[in-house]
């Protein structure tokens, strides 16, 4: 239950960052805006690490097939570029609906590969959210 709340909070966080980054992109352009975004994030993570973990060097090991897990940041950058490119062309709600379908379908596959089962509740809930999004598009386009 607490993690469900945290996931909702993460979405609220995303909404606020999108508003701030849209303003940043309008002033500095797409590419500089995205750079500033990651630069600010990076500047926060170092002191955060030092406060939590102290002055110790991190050690961890990953196996060779797992090397792709280091690329999450680069994938995030790619996603921002694509989204900012297509949103003015086809509209934020269409983008959100298609993003949602892609995310949930792939997420469900990932969960299955990770060994978790996909419950009927998750699927029905996702379809209800999708229905709400489609309804919102209908109202907006009227």
């Amino acid at each position: 239950m607490i993690y469900s709340f945290l996931a909702l909070l993460s979405g609220v966080n995303v909404a606020i960052s999108i508003m701030l980054n849209a303003r940043l992109g309008a002033i500095k352009g797409l590419y500089k805006g995205a750079f500033i975004n990651y630069f600010m994030g990076f500047c926060i993570t170092i002191p955060l690490y030092l406060i939590i973990a102290g002055f110790t060097l991190p050690t961890f090991s990953i196996s060779l097939p797992e090397i792709f897990i280091l690329t999450g940041g680069s994938i995030g950058y790619l996603v921002v570029l694509i989204n900012n490119n297509i949103t003015p062309k086809i509209g934020i709600l269409y983008v959100t609906i298609l993003l949602f379908i892609g995310q949930i379908a792939t997420g469900a596959l990932m969960d299955i590969f990770a060994g978790d089962s996909i419950s009927a509740g998750k699927l029905i809930g996702a379809l209800l959210i999708l229905a709400g999004l489609v309804y919102l598009v209908k109202v907006e386009n009227k």
Binding site: A7, V14, A114
Partner: peptide
């Protein structure tokens, strides 16, 4: 928050709920 949630409630639930939070906040 995403890292915390994904490892506890899975990808589907994390992304689904995050989207609802995002739409309501916007």
């Amino acid at each position: 928050l995403n890292n915390l949630c994904v490892n506890n409630i899975g990808v589907t639930l994390t992304l689904g709920l995050a989207l609802v939070g995002q739409i309501i906040a916007s």
